[in-house]
Design a protein around this nucleic acid. Structure first.
Lengths: 190, 190
DNA sequence: CACTAAACGGAGACAGTCCCCGCTTATCGC
DNA sequence: GCGATAAGCGGGGACTGTCTCCGTTTAGTG
């Protein structure tokens, strides 16, 4: 159904180069790095870039799939090492850190949990939602997490926490505090 | 110290026109409305626009001051009508609604609570922070809000909640739920 | 080796930002 | 009223970025 014919050698080569250069460029200039510039740096025409990656979002996703995959397997690793509640919190923390510190990741993770986006089920969306679901269910089974909380809601709230921390400009130092506030609530400590 | 001489009549006229048109344009096309287009619609050259408002942020702020002021006085109104805890929650809800539904307001409120931004103490920042401080202190005095919570932290978290709700694409229907989750915490209801 | 379809690439149309500087006009002293 | 003058105007144009189109090149195949 996909890829009736394997990619031509030159196409594959350009594809790889673009991915490599794009990751560098996004890291260096943020998610708004010039696409034509990426093409130039990869030594291809802009037409080639746009053919392989029709939208900025597509390039962003392709450039960061492995990092997203890493977040996915990190979830399972944490689930093995820690009790469910802690595993979930630690994972959310790492998710927020990635959201803020890996330039370009934010819009990608954001659109992954956006409802009603055209191609909502992108690869990275599936990965992240899967990881979150597993952790959430485990925590709920243990009774350390509200039973009425949907994984996607938690992902959105985590995105919100990352955004809040970003506003503090502390390079993510506030993430743990804001996550704790979210977990424990705003009522006086009891 | 400011305004040694009053603005020339034509300057004032253009200033007003630009503000009016800008508010419409931002409402219609979001915060990225074309500035040259705003100038054109106001019947002035782009030079005039950039002279009055050196940055997009400046124009955004000028166009929305009155709405921000309204949020400020709304805080006191709520403080008079409701017990401190409820007043705070209701105000946060209205703040989030404004953040999402008034196009262009988000980046404005965001930069108002950003630490380390160059001109951090913009007018609207002061207004919003003042309102939040009054409500937070009242709630803390009543013992219904954690004593260690800074107003600015709450504003940032509210911005996060607004962002999270936005991802749900429900036109703000999720705001109350997410605010409640933040208030009560993620632990099982008790 | 020749053929063909896949892939390339960069010119160019378009849109946005922002500055510069010659021109216009409101204001003020007379 | 009436010039003088500086405050203010405005649009042309340089620049940067996006994205498409289509003539040219080249990998893969028999």
């Amino acid at each position: 159904m996909t890829q009736v014919r394997p990619m031509r050698a030159d196409a594959r080569r350009n594809y790889e180069r673009l991915l490599k250069v794009a990751a560098e460029a996004f890291a260096e200039h943020g998610e708004n790095a010039s696409l034509d510039d990426i093409a130039k740096r990869a030594g291809v025409g802009s037409g080639t870039l746009y053919r392989h990656f029709p939208t900025r979002q597509a390039l962003l996703e392709a450039a960061y799939v492995d990092r997203i995959e890493a977040l996915g397997s990190r979830a399972d690793e944490l689930a093995r090492e820690l009790p469910p509640g802690e595993a979930l919190m630690e994972w959310l923390n790492e998710l927020c850190v990635a959201t803020i510190q890996v330039r370009g990741m934010k819009s990608l993770l954001g659109s992954a949990v956006t409802d009603g986006s055209s191609a909502a089920l992108t690869a990275c969306g599936t990965t992240v939602k899967g990881a979150a679901s597993r952790l959430v269910e485990a925590a709920q089974a243990e009774g350390v997490l509200r039973a009425d909380l949907e994984p996607i809601e938690l992902l959105r709230l985590a995105h919100g926490v990352a955004t809040a921390s970003e506003l503090a400009n502390g390079q993510g130092r506030e993430i743990r505090r804001y996550l704790a506030l979210l977990t424990e609530g705003l009522r006086p400590a009891g």
